[in-house]
């Protein structure tokens, strides 16, 4: 019966973020929070595993004070307990800081057979959380996973790589990062939503993790974030003959190196 932990990120819902057309700056003042998309798949996968094999699922997140808003949403999706680390350092944390904190928290919490993450977060999509946590904990890492099964203590996965797929088996414990196609996250029922309030959650103070100040110092600095606006060219081909229009389209695409 696997003991699973899911690391998830509470991000802003990109659908609520507006791009200022004058300078392409982002306005997230009215953006709501959400569980990062791929992390929802990680939560669902862990829940499916436990529903099939027994065991337990817990969830862990590191973020700003807003991370507390994620707890009921997370717990309504299956995990039996949620741990949360709310600290101002998360505001500018890069993958190094994030994984230093998460790995230290996991060491403090105990041992897990399976640690699941989303392949990348909805906002930064650095794809570094799972590999870095694995490295810090000295565990194997399986990334780009779109299929996962467990037999006793062996975790077997399909890794979907750009040019091939790989079938890999690892004797646990292991850190796995999942792709979006691995499952379709459940829509929590009302009873699951209302039941989430009764599940336990626990704050972990960053000061209790034994981290050094430099562990919380980002190695990368984000200098600016700008929205991307697709510029339409609005080219209209007005030849009467369809074939001539297609030929002109092909010519234009070729001129831009697109075919």
């Amino acid at each position: 019966m696997p003991n699973c932990l899911v690391c998830y990120k509470w991000t802003l819902d990109e659908r609520d973020i507006k791009i200022n057309p004058s300078d392409l700056s982002l306005d997230s003042s009215r953006a709501k929070g959400k569980i990062s998309d791929f992390d929802r798949m990680a939560i669902e996968e862990a829940t499916l595993i436990v529903e099939k094999h027994g065991g337990a699922v817990e969830a862990l997140s590191y973020g700003t004070a807003a991370v507390k808003q994620s707890l009921k949403d997370t717990l309504s999706r299956g995990p039996g307990k949620a741990y949360w680390i709310a600290d101002a350092s998360a505001e500018n944390a890069d993958a190094v800081v994030t994984t230093n904190v998460l790995a230290a928290a996991i060491k403090k919490l105990g041992s897990y057979d399976l640690i699941l993450c989303g392949e990348g977060s909805s906002d930064a999509f650095n794809q570094q959380t799972a590999p870095r946590i694995a490295a810090l904990l000295g565990l194997p890492c399986l990334s780009f996973v779109n299929k996962l099964s467990i037999t006793e203590d062996v975790v077997s996965v399909t890794r979907k790589l750009p040019d091939r797929t790989e079938e890999v088996s690892v004797r646990g414990p292991v850190v796995v990062s999942v792709l979006s196609e691995i499952n379709k996250p459940r829509i929590p029922s009302l009873k699951q939503v209302l039941g989430a309030a009764k599940k336990p959650n626990q704050e972990i103070k960053i000061a209790d993790l034994g981290l050094k100040p430099e562990d919380l110092q980002p190695k990368t600095v984000r200098r600016s974030v700008k929205g991307f606006v697709m510029q339409r060219k609005n080219v209209i081909y007005k030849e009467t003959n369809l074939a001539d229009n297609v030929a002109k389209l092909k010519e234009s695409l070729a001129a831009e190196g697109l075919c």
Partner: peptide, 9 residues
Amino acid sequence: EEQQLIQQS
């Protein structure tokens, strides 16, 4: 919070 989550569901 529950109502918002139910709305989301």
